[in-house]
């Protein structure tokens, strides 16, 4: 559900939709890491002022993941 949420939201936030992608990795502690790659000009849009957007995405990612599942994290990579 977290993946579906991010797939849905990302196009709403960026200008260069074709340059946006999401990778799903497993962290050392077993957590699921979603890595967002976007056009350089869209980096600030996904992070938001003072990190507000990326923080909101993380909060919703937790709400979208089943309680008994592994922890999830969302990062923006360049």
């Amino acid at each position: 559900m977290t993946r579906a949420m991010l797939d849905y939201v990302l196009p709403w936030l960026v200008d260069y939709e074709e340059d946006a992608s999401i990778a799903e990795l497993e962290g050392e502690g077993g957590e699921v890491i979603f890595e967002l790659t976007v056009h350089p000009d869209d980096m600030g849009k996904v992070i938001g002022r003072n990190g507000r957007i990326i923080r909101s995405l993380r909060t919703l990612a937790r709400a979208a993941s089943p309680g008994e599942g592994p922890p999830v994290s969302v990062e923006v990579v360049d």
Binding site: W12, L13, G48, I53, S56, L57, T59, L60, R62
Partner: peptide
């Protein structure tokens, strides 16, 4: 808190 995040994203989108 989740509602705040939802509103933040909705406004931005």
């Amino acid at each position: 808190q989740t509602l705040e995040a939802l509103q933040e994203l909705a406004r931005t989108a």
